[in-house]
Simulated assay, not measured.
Amino acid sequence: MESARWRSPEVAFWLLAAGCILLFPNRYLILTEIAWLALFALSLDLILGYAGIVSLGHAAFFGFGGYCAGLLALHGIIKEPVLALLVAGLAAMLLGFVTSFLVMRGSDLTRLMVTLGIALLLRELANKFSGLTGGSDGLQGIEMQPILGLFSFDIFGKVGFIYCLVVLFILFLLARRIVNSPFGLSVRAIRNNPLRASAIGIPVNRRLIAIYTLAAFYAGVAGALSTQTTALASLDGFAFERSADLMLVVIIGGTGYLYGGLIGAVIFKLLQELFSTITPQYWQFWIGAVLVVIVLIGRERLHRWVMFVPRLIASKFSRGGAA
């Protein structure tokens, strides 16, 4: 399939991402945030861009996965980070499967309210059972074990960034394979016209439940990565602002293609850091202004600017190979 083939800008994109390990040795902390935010945005794009499911409460799975990873480490149940990451992702996946039956009912407006309600409900439950979750103070005293028993998290964040980047790349490969499979094509057919998809024999509800459950797994893994790299899990993981920021990331990057969430995460975090440095109290105002500018100038033009460096690197490699 043509869309499943790797192109030179894609290869250059990931080479540039890996090159950040050497290019920005003093920026590992923000690079780590970009990595898990990109995975979080990828999870939302799976349901919004490919399945057409609008969600304002996607932070429910992010926060749930984060708390699962934190509790597993805090109580010594699973000390190995990779195994704890998988367990946290599967727990969020189970939550996504259970709640998917509620989300599938009704129209887009109903789905907006249901997803938002689920996130708010989980936040209040986490706050109520403060003896387990730490309440408004969050989980305290989380100590992470070395990854695979070999790589210890360092204070500079280098190991954490490499860890997040590897997980992001592996799950990106999986998502890429899925969206280009017959299953992914059927999900896109449902997004374009559910009635037509049902008429040709596609099980609409089962496909939507499956992609929603998969997206919950991705969001749970992103939340677990955030907890493991910061040694902190708090109620902010369930907050509406988390879901709103995620929606901005996906809008900035674009929906319906996997790199949209990745590009949006890079742009959003860089703009957030820039505006927070200039005006710490009003950085959200400037983010909104940038969003308006994107609408005016067109996202395609912005993407050409963002992808200029990977394309330049790809051209350099092709010239070198030809020589």
Rank of each mutant, 00 (worst) to 15 (best):
Q272G: 06
L46R: 06
G184L: 05
V159A: 14
V250W: 00
F183T: 06
Y67V: 05
A4S: 12
A41M: 04
Y28E: 02
E143H: 15
G321V: 13
R7F: 00
A224W: 13
G298S: 01
L121H: 00
L246K: 10
V295D: 00
K269D: 06
V204A: 04
W283R: 12
Q284E: 08
W305H: 10
G256S: 04
S130Q: 10
I53T: 07
P81V: 01
A199N: 13
G160I: 02
G149S: 05
G184C: 06
I142W: 09
S243W: 09
R7P: 00
V266W: 12
G298Y: 01
V11M: 15
P310F: 07
R177Y: 10
P81C: 02
F285G: 13
T115M: 02
V87H: 03
A38H: 14
L109P: 00
A38L: 10
V204H: 06
A215L: 04
P81R: 09
F161W: 07
L235G: 01
R299F: 01
M93V: 03
M113P: 13
S276D: 09
K128D: 13
F285R: 01
S136L: 12
L94W: 08
R5M: 10
T133P: 04
L71H: 08
D236G: 14
F169P: 09
G106R: 05
Q284W: 00
A210F: 01
A119M: 02
G253Y: 02
L248D: 02
M247Y: 10
G184R: 09
Y212V: 08
L74V: 12
N205W: 06
A88V: 09
W305A: 14
S315R: 15
I190L: 04
Y28F: 13
A322S: 07
L102D: 05
P203C: 02
G76A: 06
I287K: 05
A84N: 03
P81A: 03
P182C: 04
L95W: 11
L116Q: 11
E241D: 14
A323C: 06
L168D: 00
R27A: 14
V159Q: 15
L173V: 10
V179N: 08
G149E: 08
A51H: 04
L56F: 13
A322Y: 05
L258Q: 03
L132S: 03
A18Q: 06
H58E: 05
I209S: 11
A189R: 06
L85F: 07
M144L: 13
N192Y: 07
G220F: 07
A265L: 02
V250R: 00
L235F: 03
N127S: 13
A189D: 05
L258H: 05
T32D: 04
L174G: 14
V290S: 14
W283G: 03
F169E: 04
R111F: 00
I267W: 02
L291T: 11
Y218R: 04
K158R: 15
I200L: 10
T229W: 08
